[in-house]
Simulated scan of single mutants.
Amino acid sequence: MGQFGSFLHVNVGGGDVATYSLVSTIGLGVGLTAGVVFMRYVDTPARPHLFAVGSVIIVLACTVPLVVGFNEVSLLATLLLSALGSSFAGETVYEVWSQELFPTLLRGTAQGSTIAFGRIVAALVGFATPALAAASAGMTFAGVAALAVLAGAVGMFWTPRLPGARQLTAADESTT
């Protein structure tokens, strides 16, 4: 929704750029508010639960148009739900995990490398996204939903098993 939200809204949903821009601005407020909530609980045992909720919201956001159809309202709902879910299971939690899981001496290199990899993949996928969305919006959103499920599963089931995460979990449990 960030890179091609307005394209999807206009060319797939039949909306206009002005409406998308207005709702996108509201989405910034939703994301900011949810981010403030996340900050309150990020260093508590509630973080994994917030991540799980955020992951579910992101998957829900991707499936709304698949269930109710591709129109202006469903794509705006996707935008707002994505803003909410991403505050708990998006780049905010990546930033926290990368601070905790990489050794201090490697942190800058590791963060730069992983962010660069993600940006490069997004740019490469971006070359095909408009054509794919125009050919099959359903396939596009189903693919993004599948990737969101995969990312949520990695965050909920693999990341907690990393050595640094196990130490953090043990520390969280001893304080509660």
Rank of each mutant, 00 (worst) to 15 (best):
A165H: 07
A171S: 08
S86C: 09
S98R: 02
I26C: 07
L101A: 11
T176D: 07
T25L: 13
L162F: 10
L66N: 03
I57S: 05
G118K: 02
T104A: 11
V93W: 02
F141T: 01
R166H: 02
F88V: 09
V56Q: 01
S113C: 12
E72V: 13
M39Q: 13
Q167G: 09
G31R: 03
S6H: 01
T159R: 04
A18S: 12
V53S: 06
V144Y: 01
L22Q: 08
A46G: 06
I58E: 01
S24G: 15
G90M: 05
T169Y: 01
L84A: 12
L84Y: 00
Q3W: 06
L147G: 08
V144K: 01
P65C: 05
W158E: 01
A116W: 04
Y20S: 11
L79Y: 09
M39L: 15
A131N: 07
G90E: 01
E95K: 09
I57E: 00
V149F: 08
T104Y: 06
G29R: 04
M39D: 14
G143D: 05
G69V: 11
A123P: 02
P163T: 10
G112Y: 09
L60D: 07
R119K: 10
T92G: 07
V30T: 11
V96H: 06
S6I: 15
V149E: 00
S113I: 08
L101D: 03
G13H: 12
A134L: 14
T92C: 06
F117A: 15
N71K: 10
P130F: 10
L124D: 04
R40G: 11
A148S: 14
G90N: 05
V73D: 02
V121A: 12
A153L: 15
T33D: 00
E91W: 06
S6G: 10
V125W: 01
A170C: 02
T175S: 12
T159V: 15
M1Y: 08
S55R: 00
I58A: 03
G138K: 12
Q111L: 15
G85N: 07
T33C: 11
R166A: 10
L32G: 14
C62Q: 13
T19W: 05
A146S: 14
S98P: 06
A52F: 05
V12N: 08
V12Y: 01
G14S: 10
D16S: 13
E95F: 14
A171Q: 09
V125T: 12
S113D: 00
E100M: 12
V73H: 05
G143E: 01
A171Y: 04
F70W: 03
H49E: 03
A135S: 15
R47M: 13
P48L: 08
L60E: 00
S136G: 09
T176K: 11
W97M: 12
A135Q: 08
L106V: 10
M156G: 06
A77M: 13
E91M: 10
V42I: 13
T114G: 05
A52L: 13
L22D: 04
F4R: 04
L76Y: 07
F4H: 12
M1K: 07
V154M: 09
G2L: 13
A165I: 04
A131Q: 06
P130Q: 04
F127S: 01
L76H: 09
G2K: 02
G108P: 00
G90D: 00
V12G: 07
